[in-house]
Amino acid sequence: MLYNIFIDPFVQMAQMPDLLVQTLWEGLVSGVLYALIALGFVLIFKASGVFNFAQGIMVVFSALTLVGFYEKFSAAGFSGHTAAFVALVLTAGVMFVLAMLVERVVLRPLVNQPDIILFMATFGITYVLIGFGEMVFGGDPKQMIASELFLPSGSVDVEMLGGMVSFQKIDIAAAVIASVMIAGLALFFQKTRIGRALRAVADSHKAALSVGISLNQIWVVVWFAAGLVALVTGIMWGARSDVSFALEIVALKALPVLVLGGLTSVPGAIVGGLIIGIGEKLGEFYWGPLLGGGIESWFAYAIALLFLLYRPQGLFGDKIIERI
């Protein structure tokens, strides 16, 4: 038994390094996608202290909206790359409207309420988006318009370590796009006026107010940014599988990523995503059979839980100082 738990998996890893590489790569890719969702959470949490439960559903919603627009266009005999990109822009517009609505209807009236109330309100947003989305787009899974958006398909097979490792091109694209996106966000925070304002808000609401930054504008901006992140995530994820509300449960996986990284840290979201993604795949592949499989459903949470016991504020979270 102990041998099966502590030795055998590593023997397997050493014996078949190609399989190990394949597993690591798959973990890496899903980790990147988790990280992207978590990034959306971090953006909003940092700037407004709201734990936005709706981020996961925003991923699904934006992807569905994109496909929905495209379907309308192609029904009108207008398809191909141009149509896809017009749909993309329109979807971004929808995400902007959503950000405005959220700020107006939900955040503004609830300003200064305790965290848990705002958290609950984002549950409300989640339900509204699910209901609205299913009503408009129906409950059936949809095909992401990947090739129309110039996303590659197929795979590259590389011979290495005495075996074949296959890399899906879309996964490579996902990793690249995610990295670009993260770099872009980092630049945005560091270099632009509004980015600096966001950081000011994150540091202190009062300070931001006193230098004349409108909180309302900032909320719209972060929710819009989170919406765009959701859209990109939705496209990448949708291209790997289908677009449907089933993604929602996957989006919940971003939560352990988030706490692992520390709620407020962008690098934390990325590192956390990779740890969870890779840990989960390794766990499922090498240890899963011991437990009867399917451990992917909880393994990520268990990793996060164990890690939090050791470091309650997450990897990069601000150290919790207790004073009195």
Partner: peptide, 8 residues
């Protein structure tokens, strides 16, 4: 939709 809206 309605339950969500009512929560808010």
């Amino acid at each position: 939709l309605i339950v969500g809206a009512l929560i808010i």
